[in-house]
Structure formats: C-alpha cells, structure tokens
Simulated scan of single mutants.
Amino acid sequence: MSSAAPPGRGPKVRAAVLAATVDELSEHGYAALTVEKVARRAGVHKTTVYRRWPDRDVLIADALAESVAADLPIPDTGAIDSDLSSLARSLVVWVKSPGGRAILAVMLSDAVGLARPPDQIRHVFRDRIRGALPVVERAIGRGELPTGTNAAELLKTMVAPIYLRALITGEPLTESTADSAARLALTAAHAGLFESE
C-alpha cells in the first residue's frame, strides 16, 4: 500500500523549484541554466522536476510568469496618474529583484549571441503588458485619456526609459525614474500621440 504525499508537499516543491529557477537565471543566465542545477538548488531530484516540466524552457517560462505575476501587481487607484506611477515604481523594484534580473538575463541572451530563448519565454513580458491594459482602458472610460488611446503603446512608452537604464546606460533606477517615465507616457497620451488611426 503506497502512502500519499504529505499535505502541501506538491505546492511546496513547485514553489521551491520555481524559486530555484529564478535564482539560477538571475545569477548565471539563460545559457547556463540546467534542470540538474535547478533540482540541486531546490533540494529535489531532477526526475521530480521533469515530471512537472518536460523541458527547461517550459520550466523557465513557468518560473518567469509566476515571478512577474507575483511581483508586478496591476494597480487600480482610481486615477491614471497614480496608477501609472504605481505600475512604473513596481517595475523599477522588480527589475532590480531576482525575478527581474532573471527576465533580463533571458532577454539579453539573444542580444549577446547566445541561444535564442523560445517565444514561450519571450512572451512572458508581453503577456504582462497585456495584463496591464485595463489600467489605461479604465482611464479612457473615466475620461482621463482620449478615446482611442492605444493602451499597449502607452505602456511600452512608459517602460522604455526604465529598460534603457536597466539594459543600456546602467544609470540608477529610482522612484524618481519611475515617476518620470509615468509622466512622460501620460503627457504623450494627453497630447494624443497614442490615438489609434
């Protein structure tokens, strides 16, 4: 007669493996990540990992999606200026976190000529932009932004200065950086620069 797994073991193992994946990516990058290293770091056997995730890229995509969802909440303050500021500040904090560094490591691997991550991994951030679209859509509904404002373009404009500093210039990322990025995107939106044709 086989005994059942202790209660909570499944979710605890999953959480440990996903956290180990993020930490490995953050510290060693996409190309160096192996299921064996993740399993060792999580304190489980590699077959435990393979039972849940058939290959490393599925594991990476799951770990990054979980990290982004947990660390980048979608604000709903009732005003677009504070929503954008809150979203940008969360992004700045996240970019400096292990999860943020892990995503950057994956995205940079293609830029520096390493193996290109599959689209399922690259879509994690695009999915998060889609998840934040209601912030802009609610503002349009409240009359704070012009009707027809392209929410995705507004959000991309807001995150661009943050990623420029994180990936290119290496300048410090602060709350002031976040607030400036939010104001820039909001000013452009009020000027009608994101209105769909």
Rank of each mutant, 00 (worst) to 15 (best):
I103W: 14
L25S: 08
S67Q: 00
T34D: 03
D57T: 07
A102V: 08
A39I: 02
T77Y: 04
I60T: 14
V93P: 00
D110H: 13
S85H: 07
G100L: 03
G100M: 03
M107T: 13
I60D: 06
R41I: 00
R56I: 06
S26V: 10
A61G: 05
M107G: 12
P98E: 09
D110P: 00
V44T: 12
L87C: 07
I80Q: 06
Y30C: 08
D23F: 00
P75L: 13
A32T: 10
I60P: 01
T48N: 11
P75I: 11
L72D: 08
L64V: 13
K96R: 15
R51M: 11
S90L: 04
P98S: 10
S90E: 08
P73N: 08
D62Q: 13
R52A: 14
V68S: 04
V68E: 05
E24L: 12
D110W: 11
D110L: 10
R89I: 14
L25W: 09
V95K: 06
V35I: 15
S67N: 02
A39M: 02
D76L: 03
R41S: 09
W53R: 05
G43M: 05
V95S: 10
W94H: 12
Y50G: 01
I103K: 07
D62G: 03
S90C: 08
K46A: 11
L104M: 11
R41T: 04
A32D: 14
L59G: 05
T47R: 13
A63N: 01
G99R: 01
S86I: 10
R101L: 11
P73H: 11
T34I: 06
L87A: 15
R89V: 13
A69E: 15
L87K: 07
P98H: 11
I60E: 05
L64W: 08
P54N: 04
L87S: 07
L59K: 00
S109I: 03
L104D: 06
A111Y: 11
M107W: 06
T48S: 14
V22N: 02
M107R: 09
W53P: 10
T48P: 01
R56V: 12
S82P: 02
H28G: 06
L84I: 07
V68A: 13
L84T: 02
R56W: 02
T21F: 03
K96F: 03
L72Y: 07
S109C: 10
S97Y: 05
H28E: 11
E66N: 12
Y50W: 10
T77G: 03
L59E: 00
V106Q: 08
E24R: 13
T34L: 02
L64Y: 09
